[in-house]
Structures are given as structure tokens and as C-alpha cells.
């Protein structure tokens, strides 16, 4: 009989403690961010989708070696290049040299797993992570990023 009543009493007490805790929380400030109206800044190392890095001329640093393409586990990078002849002054005389120029750098973000293998594998520091995370669309095609175009847009 004593156990019966003590259980009732202790039970009621534990319930009251719980109510006290939630009551205290009731008056604390909110911790959430009203998302579409207010966005938070991502940390420095945040790994968004990749982005090409430009050199001083505003051209992509990428030399189209294809390392990132090979490192990618999901095969979501596809790039193309063409050889462009250009003239360079070597020891006082002009020589024509061939150089690969990036013509296409597509990222299929739908399969990208944001692992960062491409950035790590790049020996030229030509790709980096963006800080973008507001990515939502009804259209699958919106996630096929043409990174070259994005670079141009950024420059202009």
C-alpha cells in the first residue's frame, strides 16, 4: 500500500519536474532562423558544389588534364578541351606552342556526392568549393552546371 501511494506521489512529482523544464524553455529566445527570409553564412571550409578558379586574366586556371574527372567516384564531371596554338617568346624567338584550352566543364550535380576528391586531385588549384547551398529546383536539368558559363557570369 505504501508503495502504491509513493509511486503515485513520485510519478506526479516527476511529471511536475518535466512541466517545470518545458515552462522554463517557453520563455527562452528562439534558436531557429526563419530560413527564406534570413540565411546563415556557411563556414569557411563549407563544401558546396565545385567552382572553377580564374587566373589573372579571368580565364580558368584549368589545363584540362582530366585528373578530377578520373578521381570522381560518381563520374559527374565531364570536360572537353581543344588544342590551341599560341605563340610564346622563348629565348628571344617566337615559337608556336600548343596548349589545351578548356571548352567545356560540366558538373552533373544530381550524382555528385560532394566528397571533394576532385579538388584534392587537382594539381593546379583550378577548382574549389563554392559556398552555395540554396539549391532547389523542380527541374532536374537545373543541376547540370556549366561551370565555364558560371565563371564568365561571375566575371562579367
Amino acid at each position: 500500500m505504501g508503495a502504491y501511494f509513493s509511486e503515485i506521489f513520485l510519478g506526479l512529482k516527476s511529471l511536475a519536474i518535466g512541466l517545470g523544464i518545458t515552462f522554463k524553455e517557453f520563455f527562452k529566445p528562439v534558436v531557429t532562423v526563419p530560413y527564406p527570409f534570413e540565411t546563415i553564412k556557411m563556414s569557411e571550409r563549407y563544401r558546396g558544389h565545385i567552382e572553377l578558379i580564374e587566373d589573372e586574366d579571368g580565364k580558368p586556371k584549368c589545363v584540362a588534364c582530366g585528373m578530377c574527372q578520373r578521381a570522381c567516384p560518381s563520374g559527374c564531371i565531364s570536360l572537353a578541351s581543344k588544342s590551341v596554338a599560341y605563340e610564346v617568346e622563348v629565348k628571344g624567338e617566337m615559337k608556336t606552342k600548343k596548349k589545351k584550352v578548356l571548352t567545356k566543364y560540366d558538373l552533373n550535380f544530381t550524382t555528385c556526392s560532394l566528397c571533394g576528391q576532385c579538388v584534392e586531385s587537382c594539381g593546379f588549384g583550378a577548382v574549389t568549393f563554392s559556398k552555395e547551398y540554396n539549391l532547389a529546383s523542380f527541374n532536374k536539368e537545373d543541376f547540370h552546371f556549366d561551370l565555364l558559363k558560371r565563371l564568365e557570369e561571375r566575371n562579367s
Binding site: M42, S43, E44, R45, Y46, R47, S113, L114, C115, G116, F129
Partner: peptide, 14 residues
Amino acid sequence: DLMEAVTGSRLTYC
């Protein structure tokens, strides 16, 4: 937040 500052991602770390 701590882990994002170090690893760059919040859920599926690499």
C-alpha cells in the same frame, strides 16, 4: 557546427 567548420560538411563527412 563544430564539425562543419573542420570538415566542410554537416552530415556525410569525407
